[in-house]
Design a protein around this nucleic acid. Structure first.
Lengths: 110, 110
DNA sequence: AATACCACTATCTTTTAGGATACTACTTAA
DNA sequence: TTAAGTAGTATCCTAAAAGATAGTGGTATT
């Protein structure tokens, strides 16, 4: 493989890590893989995230077209966040991450 | 799926993100998937990493049993970093990351 | 003998992520 | 009508990540 191509691959890895990286983004996406969720629902799921951080991360993920914020017209209070089609395409990757994570825990602990 | 199980999955995602996350770790591992490399070789590959950061990241990855530092007994100057068996098990995941990264670039740019 | 490369280490500074906490505007249920 | 929940904002602060830069002790090269 050419060197140029390798550089591009490294950049791809860095891009993806940027998207699913940080303390919360991967977990938010994983949580939304399960089903669409509301703000406080996500907050509870994630445990210790602050509302400030959750807001920021949701906006970031929306900007990157991975999730959408939907306001139910019938009521202003009903807002759900759900994965876009593009966001859903992350699901197998997240699945593999979970599997590897479980194996890794065994290797490092055992 | 039970709620407990979901929490564990979120933790797995966070664990893995911790390992391959940050600006450099994923790229270092991806670079070593290609073949084992020397310190300055990695430095050149990664482009703008500083030696301080590279040292720190390599130590972290070594601690997590993903790479090993090998000193060639015949010469003190020949030190290579290579993936452990456990580190190699990350290769398919990194492969998928690269593929998704390429798709993502198209979605966001196009 | 001088220069350049190897694999780092040390120090100092900046940047960024994210926590803590309090507050707002609105709605629904008791 | 009061209390509790929803979906956030605003402000301040801290810790960690990582860059900039210089230096070290060795080796190999010419």
């Amino acid at each position: 493989m050419k060197n140029k191509q390798k550089q591009i691959q490294l950049r791809d890895v860095q891009d993806v890590i940027d998207i699913i990286g940080g303390r919360w983004r991967g977990a938010i996406l994983a949580s939304l893989c399960d089903k669409e969720k509301r703000f406080n629902e996500l907050k509870r799921d994630l445990g210790s995230i602050t509302p400030r951080t959750l807001t920021k991360e949701l906006k970031y993920l929306e900007m990157n077209k991975l999730i959408i914020r939907e306001v139910d017209a019938s009521s202003v209070v009903t807002i759900v966040y759900r994965l876009t089609k593009h966001g859903k395409s992350l699901e197998p990757l997240i699945g593999q991450i979970v599997i590897w994570g479980q194996k890794h825990r065994k290797v490092v602990l055992g």
